[in-house]
């Protein structure tokens, strides 16, 4: 890194005669940066590439090819087999519903709370912030039985609602902090202007502030989505009598158990279960650095 920054052009005017040398050095530095980043990235991505490659290998190829991610003979049958056997399409729909529901619920609860905590003053505000900070540190012990009892009391057992609500609750605190940070750095004049225009409290939030927090909505949405998509224990417990409500990770778990020696098959299943979330990530990722930047400013 020191090497890379060191290659940055030094400021100030330079004698004209040295310019070509500087340009060449600058170009070399840039190429070196790219080469290093590409090598690092390749190492970083290697497990993905290897899994992807192995998912197309035959069982023998898997053993004989070792580190080489490129299959000698491409076999697509792992995918059709894994797709059919694991009933991924059923789990896929449930997972989308759970992840989507968790995202909506989390965004609603945390953006509203983040807004009032950041932009309004009310008795008890500090106590609320203190409470949610403490939960970040509290041990999450054997809480599944109390949670289960509450969900039973609400008559939500064996519904996707239960999964959505419990799942959302697990990531509220951090999301609230992010929204708080984001709203507290937004220009006050926007709000004032809205008020001058006669906007009510609700209109100000829903029509003005929330739409302006797009990058943070994308960021929190993405984080929530990743967590909900990969969650295993919560969907397992709250859909225990309704296997038709299982999500991908739960289905994946049985799939792993049933095919524990068909490794190319396992690789295909892993790719299938990861692919959607990777795509969602690729679509949303460009927002979220901006979103986070908004939250940490100030």
């Amino acid at each position: 890194m020191a090497l890379l920054t060191a290659r940055r052009p030094a400021p100030g005017p330079r004698p004209a005669g040295r310019r070509p040398a500087v340009n060449a050095r600058r170009a070399a530095g840039r190429s070196a940066t790219h080469v290093l980043l590409l090598i690092g990235g390749l190492i970083w991505l290697f497990p993905f590439l290897w899994t992807l490659g192995s998912s197309f290998k035959s069982a023998d190829g898997f053993f004989s090819q070792g580190l080489n991610p490129i299959p000698k003979h491409v076999m697509v049958s792992n995918y059709s087999g894994a797709w059919k056997e694991a009933s991924f399409e059923k789990y896929f729909v449930n997972t989308v519903l759970v992840a989507g529901g968790a995202v909506v619920l989390t965004l609603a609860a945390t953006s509203m709370a983040g807004y009032v905590l950041a932009r309004t003053e009310f008795p008890g505000r500090k106590a609320v912030i203190g409470l949610i900070s403490v939960t970040l540190f509290l041990p999450h012990g054997y809480t599944i039985i109390p949670i289960f009892d509450i969900v039973r009391g609400l008559h939500l057992l064996n519904t996707l609602w239960a999964v959505i609500i419990v799942q959302s609750s697990s990531s509220l605190v951090f999301a609230t902090f992010l929204f708080m940070g984001y709203f507290s750095t937004m220009d006050r004049e926007i709000e004032d202007a809205a008020r001058v225009d006669g906007a009510s409290f609700h209109q100000t939030f829903w029509r003005v502030m929330l739409p302006l927090s797009g990058p943070m909505l994308a960021t929190v949405g993405l984080f929530t989505c990743i967590t909900a998509w990969n969650s295993f224990f919560i969907p397992l417990v709250f859909t225990l009598s309704k296997p038709e409500l299982h999500t991908l990770p739960v289905g994946m778990y049985s799939f792993l158990g049933q095919n524990s020696t068909d490794w190319t098959f396992l690789c295909a299943g892993s790719v299938i279960s990861l692919l959607p979330i990777v795509v969602i990530f690729l679509l949303l990722q460009r927002y979220f650095v901006n979103g986070l930047a908004g939250a940490v400013k100030g």
Binding site: F148, R152, L157, N158, L236, V237, L240, S241
Partner: peptide, 13 residues
């Protein structure tokens, strides 16, 4: 754990 929770939830097989 699952069977225990199923009985707890009144939802056992």
């Amino acid at each position: 754990d699952l069977i225990n929770l199923a009985f707890r939830g009144g939802d056992a097989p």
